[in-house]
Nucleic acid binder design. Structure first.
Lengths: 134, 134, 134, 134
DNA sequence: TTTT
DNA sequence: TTTT
């Protein structure tokens, strides 16, 4: 069991890259507000990096922009890499398995009078044997 | 919503420290196996740092040791700090809100014939204004 | 571990009642859409009864109306009762521990130009020794 | 989002049935202890019906017996049916998407000296167009 | 730096 | 480095 559920706003537009073998990888950061328990003034947030693969990556690239609100279901993953100075460094990311778009419509899009619709995209749980491209 | 649920084994004994004001803080790492979906041979794990506060910290210190299996419910938190070389560095931890001890008894303890009992400790969600002591 | 996380729309206005001892209890039903995986046309939903206690109950009564979208975190509870015909019947409800209001503003309220704000209410986990009043 | 995570013990052996088209369906009930917050004596439990489909159903039938401890990840589903007396009745079940077997070995099986192994079975999220057979 |  |  390695389950993460987050609701937050995109802190920046998603970047979509492709692995050697052509798999799409989207990455972005979401700001998850905390402090609901504290005084409502001092709003703080955790900025959490999200990674999505394949079809889900493409859906993110096509539909999400900075500021949009999403619910992300995924798992925590710790990646390690080596710096130019031969130091081991660790990165923690959430590998998205499922993302729900919580805003009714894409930002900037024409506000249709239609009832707000949930959008949702599913991705199976991938453990690709390829590196996440930087 | 910032929710994490993990099941894993302690990769090391918990360390319990105290803040200036005397709050207990336990920290340890759990190994969460992945790859259940892949070939069963290549076992890999994510090593995820856990932080518990106050009463829950003390329960961890008194009851958990390396190797024990736990279910951790908490939230992801990203902390930043500055290195001696004035570089900003980020650490991601899970702040535990609730831990269930999934083994029947403490390691090494006398195996009582008693029915295995779930142990569980609850901690309220703390956002202390104090630093996590290193 | 008994954890439920749902996102859905209120199928009716909340009803707030009070126990003998004066504890507030709110109950309502949310419609949780499914079928995202299936053909997008055939929308179906699960109608899931939610119960909130005390301060959280009052927040629900004061802020939620039919149609509003919420994220509910809670636990599943099965209650049994006896019918007039002496038959045992079972009801499954979600006891809310935390509710996030996912719409920017209360329904019918004046649409302020202000940035949409997340509202959130917390309730501790109650296992009251009192019946849920019908 | 319709997510349920439960840890409990099987209250009875799973029953495996087959639909018209040959799909396996396992059903069983798990006892999820509560009251951790209350006095530790008065142990109470919620008895929650679980349904698993296809490959996951078969894994349950082959590996689970009364008393075993499991972690169930799934979604809540409300089914309605009509009694012989033409009354509409509702059943709430958890449709399992993933089950982790939390005991090292099958009950009654020879206690091997081998290191306890997590077993895990995955099922995709099915919304079959067939009835759950009684 | 790691668990079973 | 950040969102509302």
């Amino acid at each position: 069991m390695n389950k993460v559920i987050l609701v937050g706003h995109l802190a920046r537009d998603p970047e979509v890259r492709y692995t050697q073998s052509g798999k799409a990888v989207a990455s972005f950061t979401i700001a998850v507000n905390r402090n609901f328990g504290g005084t409502p003034e001092q709003r703080e947030a955790d900025f959490i990096p999200i990674v999505a693969w394949e079809r889900l990556a493409e859906t993110c690239g096509n539909n999400l922009t900075k500021g949009r609100r999403v619910l992300v279901e995924g798992r925590m993953q710790v990646r390690s890499y080596e710096t130019a100075e031969k130091q081991r460094r660790y990165v923690t990311e959430v590998i998205a398995q499922n993302i729900e778009f919580l805003d009714s419509r894409k930002q900037g899009g024409p506000e249709t009078g239609a009832a707000p619709a949930d959008m949702s995209s599913f991705g199976k749980d991938v453990f690709p044997d390829e590196e996440i491209p930087f």
